Simulated scan of single mutants.
Amino acid sequence: MIVLLALGGSVGACDVAVVGDSTAEEDILTVPGLTWVAQWRSSLTDTEICNFALGGRSLAHFVKPHFLGATAEPEQWWEGFGPRHPGDRSWIIPGKSWMTTVRDSHPRTLVMAWGLNEIWEGAADGSFVTMYRDRLRSVVTQTRAWQPAPRIVLLTSLELQPDPAVMEAVPPSRLAAINDVTRQVAAESGSMLIDVNRAWRAYPKPSRLLDKSMGGNGISHPSTLGHLLISRIVMLSPLLPISHH
Results as ranks from 00 to 15, higher is better:
residue 192 M to D: 15
residue 71 T to W: 13
residue 102 V to S: 05
residue 219 I to V: 15
residue 165 A to N: 01
residue 109 T to P: 07
residue 47 T to H: 05
residue 144 R to V: 14
residue 148 P to M: 02
residue 44 L to C: 11
residue 107 P to R: 01
residue 94 P to W: 01
residue 65 P to C: 00
residue 17 A to L: 10
residue 109 T to F: 04
residue 110 L to W: 14
residue 168 E to R: 08
residue 54 L to A: 04
residue 41 R to P: 00
residue 216 G to I: 02
residue 115 G to H: 05
residue 78 W to M: 08
residue 14 C to G: 04
residue 62 F to E: 03
residue 179 N to G: 08
residue 118 E to N: 11
residue 166 V to C: 04
residue 116 L to V: 05
residue 173 S to F: 12
residue 74 P to W: 00
residue 26 E to D: 08
residue 203 Y to E: 08
residue 39 Q to K: 03
residue 216 G to R: 02
residue 42 S to W: 07
residue 233 I to K: 11
residue 15 D to K: 07
residue 224 T to A: 06
residue 240 L to N: 15
residue 179 N to W: 13
residue 80 G to H: 00
residue 231 S to P: 09
residue 72 A to M: 13
residue 28 I to R: 15
residue 173 S to K: 10
residue 31 V to G: 01
residue 66 H to D: 00
residue 229 L to V: 12
residue 73 E to R: 08
residue 199 A to G: 11
residue 63 V to K: 01
residue 107 P to Y: 02
residue 202 A to S: 14
residue 227 H to S: 08
residue 186 A to H: 09
residue 52 F to S: 04
residue 12 G to P: 04
residue 118 E to L: 09
residue 169 A to V: 06
residue 156 T to H: 10
residue 90 S to L: 12
residue 144 R to T: 15
residue 168 E to K: 10
residue 195 D to I: 07
residue 102 V to G: 09
residue 159 E to D: 06
residue 60 A to W: 04
residue 50 C to I: 08
residue 208 R to Y: 08
residue 179 N to K: 13
residue 59 L to K: 03
residue 237 S to R: 15
residue 208 R to Q: 09
residue 72 A to I: 05
residue 25 E to S: 03
residue 131 M to Q: 15
residue 158 L to D: 01
residue 83 P to N: 03
residue 196 V to I: 14
residue 53 A to F: 00
residue 241 P to D: 14
residue 163 D to R: 01
residue 237 S to M: 13
residue 169 A to N: 05
residue 104 D to N: 12
residue 197 N to G: 12
residue 98 W to V: 00
residue 117 N to F: 03
residue 5 L to P: 15
residue 126 G to Y: 06
residue 58 S to H: 02
residue 17 A to S: 11
residue 40 W to R: 07
residue 106 H to W: 02
residue 187 A to K: 12
residue 89 R to P: 12
residue 139 V to L: 10
